[in-house]
């Protein structure tokens, strides 16, 4: 186990560097193709050259290599790595930092991410809980009785959910459930506000910090819920026919133990890995759901950076998200080894 962890950690370093470089390169080419992004901030107005120059230099966008199309700007990459090493992910054009860890403890050091993160964490936890509990449960039941009605409905509904883009699902749910149905609820005197305005509110509300995140959380979890249910189904279904399950039966164990211990333990290995990997999906998902339901989380800030033409913020946030994603992947790998001894002793 120890050797495995060390090896994984050693492999992790080049992966991080490679991915950060890729991100750097692709965005740099983008800037080279587009031209100075600062200019765009001013729309049709022509800023004074001094203002433009000052801003450009503060945001590290004055490097001459940004004018040479295709140049990988290695110098810039090195600078960026150093910054990242110091947990500096840049600032917006008003010099508000993208990230400052002190912001978690001290309002004076507030930053874009530290302000937004709590919302994103909450919504992700809701989504993840729903995905894991409901998805695994449904998938398990469906996998144990292949060809039965639950199995078919899982098959059909997963295909449905997979083919409806999350944002379409989001806007439909927002319109028909939180607006239309919510308006109906809000018309009923006897329904408590936390339900009618909180849970079924069409946007995030400060007064209902948890209730008004439930539906956005469900929307966020929906996509991976379908995949999880389907994966669990396939995995249980396959493992039900595995030789060692037959052995467990031959050992005269009860049906409950054959399924609950011998089948399930093995079936959940790929599912657990997938649950971890769905974090990557949550990141894009959060951008969509938070935008639709106006949750002031990290995703919302990302979308805002796009709409307001703030590539520095966009790159900063994305870099951080990618780092989180890579760490999550690493943890999933380690979890995999915990669950499957064959990996551990490789």
């Amino acid at each position: 186990m120890g050797r495995y962890i060390v090896r994984r950690l050693l492999q992790f370093i080049p992966t991080v560097l490679g991915t950060l470089f890729l991100l750097h390169y692709l965005t740099t080419v983008g800037i080279q193709l587009t031209g100075n992004p600062i200019r765009a901030l001013f729309g049709d107005k022509r800023p004074a050259p001094e203002t433009l120059a000052a801003l450009t230099s503060r945001l590290h966008l004055d490097d001459p290599c940004l004018k040479q199309k295709g140049n990988p700007c290695l110098g810039l990459f090195r600078e960026r790595l150093v910054d990242i090493g110091q947990l500096d992910f840049g600032t917006n054009f008003r010099f508000r930092p993208v990230f400052d860890w002190r912001g978690f403890f001290d309002r004076a050091h507030a930053s874009i991410i530290t302000d937004a993160l709590p919302y994103t964490i909450k919504i992700t936890i809701i989504a993840f809980t729903i995905e894991a509990l409901v998805g695994v449960f449904i998938g398990m039941r469906a996998g144990m009785k292949p060809g039965k009605s639950l199995d078919y409905s899982v098959k059909i509904s997963t295909v449905m959910v997979i083919s409806v883009p999350v944002f379409v699902l989001g806007i439909l749910i927002q319109q028909f459930i939180t607006r239309d149905f919510g308006n109906f609820l809000r018309g009923q005197e006897w329904i408590p506000e936390v339900i009618s305005r909180g849970v079924f509110g069409s946007a995030y509300k400060q007064e209902f910090p948890f209730a008004s995140l439930i539906i956005p959380g469900i929307v966020l979890g929906m996509l991976s819920l379908a995949t999880t249910a389907r994966l669990t189904r396939t995995s249980v279904h396959e493992n039900m026919r595995a030789d060692y399950v037959r052995t467990a039966k031959a050992k005269g164990l009860t049906h409950k133990r054959v399924i609950g211990v011998h089948t399930l333990r093995n079936s959940l290995i790929p599912v657990a890995t997938n649950l971890g990997l769905s974090i990557g999906g949550y990141m894009t998902g959060a951008i969509i759901t938070e935008t639709i339901f106006n949750v002031p989380g990290v995703g919302n800030q990302t979308a805002r950076a796009i709409f307001q033409g703030e590539p520095a913020v966009l790159i900063g946030i994305t870099t951080m998200l990618v780092l989180v994603y890579l760490v999550a992947n690493l943890l999933v790998d380690l979890l995999y080894a915990v669950l499957d001894p064959r990996i551990r002793y490789e």
Binding site: T15, L22, L23, G30, G35, A40, G309, V322, L326
Partner: peptide
């Protein structure tokens, strides 16, 4: 290695950042 690198970038997030930068182009 290249495959691994690109795989480490969540697909839509990656597309979003590139196109977001290119938005004014």
């Amino acid at each position: 290695r290249i495959i691994d690198m690109i795989y480490s970038l969540p697909f839509l997030l990656g597309a979003l950042v590139i196109l977001g930068v290119l938005r004014q182009s």
